[in-house]
């Protein structure tokens, strides 16, 4: 039995992951901005077998409220074994190029809000001597590209933070998983034409659950993205800078 806290609980990937966990009878603490959506998900997870489902309304960007949210989760759930971070936005790159405020807001949502939360979570798990931290980063963080480097920079910040955190917490028996999905067919990417590289949310969710089970450190999802990113990372910069990617 596991007690998970899920941030960004109404995202399409999070919902699929929670369905699998619900089928295993886990207890789930859902955090998201929209109560109505969480209520619909809560009923579904209950039917699928979750032994407890709680909901909590919070905008992850309100970092000053993170501690009280975690306290509330501990209170309602007894304790938390795992934290799964699934919230995020896909910025309009052009808008980010025009405005630092927009760029800052995107970096705050996709990286700083997670760092705020995990700073507190890490300290709590470190004291308890156990815990799982699973965070959705992105292949976009592996190398900056002109088409979405603000998003990429935020995810690179996040991935490096998680690397360091993993390194620090390994001796406290706390596991940190960095999830790097490629293209996933979700509402966030609704505007894109879908080709062969696109994965379904169900596929990615199964990959996440299995990576948590196997206590992997880093998971490219689907796995072939590891090979794609290996190549992209190793193209020399003097060539890479001329590519339109």
């Amino acid at each position: 039995m596991k007690n998970w806290l899920i941030l960004g609980a109404t995202s399409a990937i999070a919902e699929e992951v929670m369905r699998i966990w619900a089928g295993r009878g886990y207890k789930l603490f859902l955090v998201a901005r929209n109560q109505d959506k969480m209520d619909m998900i809560k009923a579904d997870l209950g039917v699928r077998g979750a032994s407890q489902v709680e909901t909590y309304v919070l905008d992850a960007n309100e970092t000053t409220k993170h501690i009280s949210m975690l306290d509330e989760a501990d209170k309602r759930m007894g304790h938390i074994d795992g934290v799964f971070v699934a919230h995020g936005t896909l910025p309009d790159q052009k808008a980010c190029e025009q405005s630092y405020d927009v760029a800052y807001q995107e970096i705050h949502t996709n990286a700083l809000s997670v760092i705020s939360l995990l700073t507190e979570v890490a300290n709590r798990f470190e004291v308890r001597g156990h815990g799982d931290i699973a965070v959705i980063s992105s292949v976009a963080g592996d190398r900056g590209r002109q088409s979405n480097y603000v998003y990429g920079a935020a995810k690179a910040l996040l991935s490096s933070f998680l690397q360091g955190l993993r390194n620090r917490l390994v001796k406290s028996n706390v596991h940190v998983l960095t999830i790097k999905p490629g293209f996933v067919d979700t509402p966030m990417t609704a505007e894109f034409d879908k080709g062969a590289l696109w994965a379904s949310t169900e596929q990615v969710a199964q990959g996440i659950v299995s990576a948590v089970d196997k206590q992997r450190n880093e998971a490219y999802l689907p796995g072939f993205w590891w090979a794609i990113m290996f190549i992209i990372k190793h193209v020399p910069e003097f060539i890479f800078k001329k590519l339109s990617m």
Binding site: A12, M40, I41, A43, D44, V47, R48
Partner: peptide
């Protein structure tokens, strides 16, 4: 296709 939640059982 994405409207696929259980409500009551």
């Amino acid at each position: 296709r994405k409207l696929n939640r259980f409500i009551n059982y």
